[in-house]
Every structure is written in structure tokens, then in C-alpha cells.
């Protein structure tokens, strides 16, 4: 949107100016309050342990040092946690994209009995809070002997009703003629899906991918329950949560670990802001 000022009504420019001034003041104060935790996280990560224990605390690091970053890297296997999370999040995201696209195509372009009923049943599962399925799903995982494996972190979440719903909307937006003429030319469902429908539904794919990836990256409760005995398969959030308990008083190290944890997502967000904001405004889903 443009930055052109709103036309002011004659006779009240001073009110306009006052309103603008107050607006900027409010935004500045609000913005500072919102940004402050990020500043404090970074500032603390650059302090020494002695400096974090000063009363009253220092508002900025007196002698900024990056030493904490090296220390954190040694104190806990964060590289491993990162690799685990990236691997898990990529598998989950790829899985959701594939399963959702297949199912969405069936709902959008094939007439079959039970289509309506199944679709409604799927949508109804969106009402189930995660805490309710946590216990039965954990027991299912133990029956499958999947506890403390990557399978437990990945497989249950490789399908997403939200993904199916969204991709179906996008597929319905593609003119039917495209599918009809493709079918006349002897083009099968999968060929149509991968050659024609998915390239046209790319915005939908990116919404589903961003929301799924973010949810998987930030998940804590499920990993906390299914990964208990093998620290080497912990995803990053669980690694960070454990680190905060183990290193309780070493706030400089905890803040350093927190900076490391959010850095990849923040960088990704700043690079692809528009897609992030639109995806999330559209969905309201967070893991």
C-alpha cells in the first residue's frame, strides 16, 4: 500500500498532525516493548556469567563476547538437535504436501460415494484438542515399539486435514476444462496432478509447507512424551527445554541457546515475510 497521507479536511490540520504524532509515539512505545525481549536475549548472550549475576543488572553488555556461543555448542549437542529437527520437519512437511495433494485431488475432481461424509468426518477431527489424543497416541506408539525413534516424531503427523482442506480449495479454483481435456488426451490422475494441478496450486503448497514446517519446528509436547531415553534424537525445542532445566542458573548460556534456536526461523521469516504473514493469516494454525 502507498504511503500517501490521507487528504486532510479543511480547518483541522493541527488535529491531523496531533493524531499522526500520537500514532507514531504509540507505535514506537509498543514496538519497543515488543522488540525488547529479543534485545534482552541477544544482550544476555553476549555477557559473561559474572555480569548476568550483577545487581542491578546491566542494560547492555559491558564487554560483549561471543564466547558463550562456543560454550553452548560444546555443552549440549545443538548441532545434532538442529539436524534432527530439520530432518523431522522436512519429512513431515514433504509427507503432508504429498498426502494432502493426493486426497485433495480426489475430493476436488472425482465423484465417488461417501465423498461428502468422509470430508465432514475429516473436518470434525480439527475440533479435537491435541491433549486428548496425546495419551492414546503415546500408547499406540509404544505398541508399535516406536518410542525413542524418528518414526514416532514423523509418521503420525504426515497427514493433515487442514492441508487437505486448503489444497482442495486451490484445486477447485482450477478450471474443470483443464482436467477434462487432459483426461480426454489419456492423461491419468497422477500425471494431471503433478504436471498440471500442483504447478498451478503453488501458492497453496507454500501455505501448507510454511505452516507445517513452523508447527514441526516449534513442537514441544509430543517430543517431550515420546523421546525420553535417547537424547541423541531430541528435536531442538526439547533440547532447549532440557538445557534450560540443566543449566538453570547460567542465563547467559540459556539465552545463547535460545538465540540459536530461533535464528533459522527468524531468518527464514525475514526472507519470506509476505508468504509467512499471508499463510498464517489464512490458517490460524500453530503447532
Amino acid at each position: 500500500m502507498s504511503d500517501t497521507p490521507r487528504p486532510t479536511l479543511p480547518g483541522r490540520p493541527w488535529r491531523q498532525r496531533l493524531a499522526d504524532g500520537l500514532t507514531y509515539l504509540a507505535l514506537l512505545v509498543g514496538g519497543l516493548a515488543v522488540a525488547f525481549p529479543f534485545y534482552w536475549m541477544i544482550a544476555t548472550s553476549l555477557k559473561t556469567h559474572e555480569e548476568t549475576m550483577r545487581v542491578p543488572p546491566t542494560l547492555y553488555p559491558l564487554a560483549p563476547t561471543l564466547a558463550n556461543y562456543a560454550k553452548v555448542w560444546e555443552a549440549a549437542p545443538f548441532a545434532r538437535y538442529f539436524a534432527n529437527t530439520v530432518g523431522v520437519a522436512l519429512c513431515v512437511t514433504l509427507g503432508v504436501l504429498i498426502t494432502s495433494s493426493l486426497a485433495a485431488h480426489a475430493f476436488a475432481r472425482i465423484r465417488f460415494s461417501g465423498s461428502q461424509a468422509i470430508f465432514v468426518a475429516l473436518l470434525a477431527t480439527l475440533m479435537i484438542p491435541f491433549e486428548v489424543i496425546l495419551i492414546p497416541d503415546y500408547i499406540l506408539i509404544t505398541r508399535l515399539h516406536w518410542e525413542d525413534t524418528y518414526l514416532a516424531l514423523i509418521v503420525p503427523w504426515m497427514a493433515s486435514v487442514f492441508g487437505v482442506f486448503l489444497m482442495r480449495q486451490f484445486f477447485l479454483g482450477i478450471p474443470t476444462e483443464l482436467w477434462e481435456s487432459a483426461a480426454l488426451d489419456g492423461c491419468g490422475h497422477l500425471t494431471y496432478l503433478f504436471r498440471i494441478a500442483l504447478p498451478l496450486a503453488r501458492p497453496g503448497l507454500s501455505v501448507v509447507a510454511i505452516v507445517t514446517f513452523l508447527g514441526s519446528w516449534n513442537a514441544l509436547l509430543w517430543p517431550l512424551v515420546v523421546v525420553t531415553r535417547r537424547p541423541e534424537i531430541r528435536p531442538i525445542q526439547l533440547g532447549l527445554a532440557v538445557f534450560t532445566t540443566e543449566f538453570g542458573v547460567y542465563s547467559h548460556l540459556i539465552m545463547t541457546a535460545a538465540v540459536l534456536t530461533i535464528l533459522p526461523v527468524v531468518v527464514l521469516f525475514l526472507l519470506a515475510q509476505r508468504q509467512f504473514v499471508e499463510s498464517i493469516a489464512r490458517t490460524g494454525v500453530k503447532g
Binding site: 522488540a35 513452523l214 516449534n218 526461523v265
Partner: peptide, 16 residues
Amino acid sequence: LFFLPYVTSLVAAAAV
């Protein structure tokens, strides 16, 4: 700026 906290993991944010 206002959106940034939302993409930040709750674990990291809670620690801060």
C-alpha cells in the same frame, strides 16, 4: 516487528 514474536518458538520466548 509485531509479527516476529509469533514465529519465535514458545520455548525460547518463555526462557527469555
